[in-house]
Amino acid sequence: MNQKRSWFLPACLIAGFAFLYVPILSLVIFSFNASKLVTVWGGFSAKWYAELLGNSQILDAAWLSVRIAAINASLAVVLGTMVALVLTRLGPFRGRALLSGMATAPLVMPEVITGLSMLLLFVSLEQWFGWPQGRGVTTIVIAHATFSLAYVAVIVQSRLTQLDESIEEAALDLGARPAKVFFVITLPIIAPALISGWLLAFTLSLDDLVIASFTSGPGSTTLPMVIFSKVRLGVSPEINALATILIAIVAIAVVVAGYFMKRQESMRQRDIQRAIAANQ
């Protein structure tokens, strides 16, 4: 590229990434701070981790959140994949525009509105049909799945549009019925998209405070709700320790996933090289 400007983009990148990562780094560093004043260094200590592991309120909430996130992610993947299939493969039908609108709007809908509307729906449903009785895990899962499925649909849809449709046609042509084509051909090919969709839905749910606050009931306090009530009262070293553990889990997962992806990619490259060599 241009010589004179060559420093500009790297500088922007460095500054941008510093902006993204310095706060996270500060969370990690001060989680090992002996002092209770989170931002004043008082020597190295891991006592906040011990305290965190003894805090049953946080642990219970974390376990609940993980369960909700897992159910939500599974539900969102099924529904989101159906939406993506309908929008990319089933051709035009009346009401298609409405479906595609309803499947993309949750991506940008402010959380307070989604949360409020969900709550009012559940209250009204209870009034009319007696279901759901009170609010809790079920209502949180339904609310989360509704906006998570939009994210899954976007991911799967983009994978399906990239996928050569003639692969599915070839399977039909060779005698497989449409349902079988989906499960034997399409599903294995789009599996990576489904996995990333699942992970995204899981994270979205694990991370959500606002919608969960509206749709939860007594006895279903999720991890973000606990964190929020603590953070509102000011900084707390325990929260730093929790953040560090979460960051460590994500970092390890990313490194492992990255390693496997890289290995697979290099194997693929080697195979391609070999195929070209064999042909010559």
Partner: peptide, 13 residues
């Protein structure tokens, strides 16, 4: 992928 709430919290510190 890390918690949004905790990232906002980091800025308080």
């Amino acid at each position: 992928w890390t918690s949004f709430l905790l990232r906002v919290y980091a800025w308080i510190g």
